[in-house]
Design a protein around this nucleic acid. Sequence first.
DNA 1: CCTATAATCGTCCATAGTGGAACGTCCACT
DNA 2: AGTGGACGTTCCACTATGGACGATTATAGG
Lengths: 174, 174
Amino acid sequence: MNDVNPTAAALLGLLHAGEATGYQLWDTAREFIGDFWTVTRSQAYRELARLAERGMVQAQPTRARSARPYRLTDSGRAAFAEWLVVPPGPENIRYPLLLTLSFGQFLDDDRLLEYVAEHRSAHAERLRRYQEFDADPMFDKYQRSTLRFGIHYERAVLAWMDELPGILRGSDDD
Amino acid sequence: MNDVNPTAAALLGLLHAGEATGYQLWDTAREFIGDFWTVTRSQAYRELARLAERGMVQAQPTRARSARPYRLTDSGRAAFAEWLVVPPGPENIRYPLLLTLSFGQFLDDDRLLEYVAEHRSAHAERLRRYQEFDADPMFDKYQRSTLRFGIHYERAVLAWMDELPGILRGSDDD
DNA sequence: CCTATAATCGTCCATAGTGGAACGTCCACT
DNA sequence: AGTGGACGTTCCACTATGGACGATTATAGG
């Protein structure tokens, strides 16, 4: 009926804060939900166009730089509310490093561990950033909840990475 | 040049173990790399067709049930080797529960915690399964490495979920 | 004030990934 | 002999990714 996909729903959710252009929505999506729900620019524009067709958002007069803000309609608000009460599905992880690792028999272990080390610094950096945010009182409890996920996740990844040299170099057999 | 996408590369990797049909590849991919790299059936068939066009796999005479096995060619082996030495990119997580959670202000906390509880049991079950595998000596060190990721990950998710009631119910403000 | 540079904004396109419907074949079991 | 389930393929609609291209506006330095 009025069903929207999660990405469209996210845009509707963000539009509750007031009208915004595709670019702005993409940008805020990146900042607020980008760590667990990617929205590309093309996608934002396409979903907005579809939502407009279906009357869930309404294009406003264009501003400078031909910026076209969209405003949430009642129908859009309703569709968002409907989407919100659908039990969320399982997560989906795509981790190229693990894919490479699983074919490790065709590569040398040192190379693998280099890849791991490169990723490690990025994860350490993200953890540091998350922990800064965590100390910041400006976030509400929902943002804090997702932030806490990030912290647990990054810590797990780091712990795992620290374990890898022992596993890979530990034994040459298998 | 001979660049293949990660999914195609995974199929080439699996084909090192001997010729296989699209169905078989999909099935083994699910089992071996499915936890961090999903390959759908349609995708497996499509990538095989593309790889065949490019001469990286070769269709063998069809067997029963019009099963068409593919065999790795030298060119395919080379393409896989090339792919393997490309540093793997960052992971990509799509977690609908976190998306819903980030819009938690429009939902009641009890409902959110119900969603969390439902997911929790699935994660607990996966952790249990992983830990069984971890005790099994039949896995080589590369499989064990990816398995260890799963264990760290599931533990992190569970720890996070156990923290949530305190965060969501702890304070009504923000 | 002027200009280079960066940020904002939109469109378009090729490629990649998801999920399920539809359909046929073969096997095991009753 | 019939039937349910596993195997196997095709096709399709929808969703997502990432980058190219081009235009406009803000802003910072000279």
